[in-house]
Amino acid sequence: MEQNITGEDSTRHYLLGDLPAEERRPLEERLLADGDFLKYLSAVEDDLVDEYVRGELSEGERERFESFFLITAERRRKVKFAQALRRYNEPALTSATSPAMASTPKRAWWRALLSGLRIRRPVMWLPAAAACLLLAALSAYWVMVRHRPPRGGPELSQGLPAPNRQPDATPQETPPAGGQLAEVNDAVPVPSARDGRKPADTAREGRVPPDVPRPATVVVLSPVLISGSVRGEGGAMQPIVVPPNAGRVRLRLALPARDYETYDAVLISGERSTRIPGARVVGKVEGRDLIAVELPADKLPYGEYQLRLSGRNQRGESHYVDTYSFRVKTKYAATRPPGRRRRPFMPLR
């Protein structure tokens, strides 16, 4: 389209009502005559609305925006949408607009952490944060593989029924690099269109020898969960997206402080509780120690959970540390075949 005829600056001035009459006329005539220009104008409107919501307009622009632009119901609707989209893309902002979440130094810390690390909108990650988490994920995987008792052993079976797997099954973690990590809350069970990698490619890279038939267990890494004492009671519950074909879920918990070598967790859902002993520190994220707790995905159906964490000192005494609240959601496939509906959510309650 002929954007050169009407530059973006003129269009913005026009929308804010401060374009001189002699410049306004050709623009209005074009608005009525050129269908593409109407779309272009609406797109510029969207940008203005975003800038208003982000507080990026100059004082004069903001005044014009509020007194001139923001008069129709449709435009106010656009502002509401922009606010919702921003809260969605930058979840840490939720607390900033909620009166229930007064600012405290602690929250300032978790906001900063969440704004960089929250994984609900993976494409928003800064590359540095992604690299940092990759390192943490790899460390967690390595430590857990090295220190985990034999499959079916006491670690999980104490509190959880054995998951559906073959005795020699080895978890095959979704490749932590590139688009797959970013596609579905850290781990994607399906080949990503972004990098074109397929499960077979992963095998060829040597992590799972292609000549050894092993059932593929997709391990989903949770976002870094922040404890209730740090987030505050008014904070939104942290979501974890679990794809339908996930085999295991690794919950990653940011510790408020590192006072113990070993930690035990109790997963609480409704009236059920499941003990998960022996979690250890597996890495550090943003200056906070990170521990990982892994459990079968079928123990985490759609619903809300609390994870109570306690630490064990050298004498074996257990002390309560903190509680982490989260919500498990299912996840759409990255590419859904046309015409197929997403599997409906099945709430527990």
């Binding site: 919501v53 509020e66 007194s67 923001l70 008069i71 106010r76 502002v79 509401k80 606010q83 919702a84 989209l85 809260r87 969605y88 979840p91 939720t94 607009t97 909620s98 009166p99 229930a100 609900r120 008014g234 939104a236 519950m237 979501p239 959601k329 759409y332 997403r342």
Partner: peptide, 29 residues
């Protein structure tokens, strides 16, 4: 005179934020 609407930058209830997030999950899906 045009009567302007009340400010749109008012605080939002957590309930609405949660609903928005769920809806956007669905819509983007």
């Amino acid at each position: 005179n045009v009567t302007l609407p009340p400010t749109l930058l008012a605080p939002v209830r957590d309930e609405r934020v949660e609903a928005e997030a769920e809806c956007l999950d669905d819509c983007l899906g």
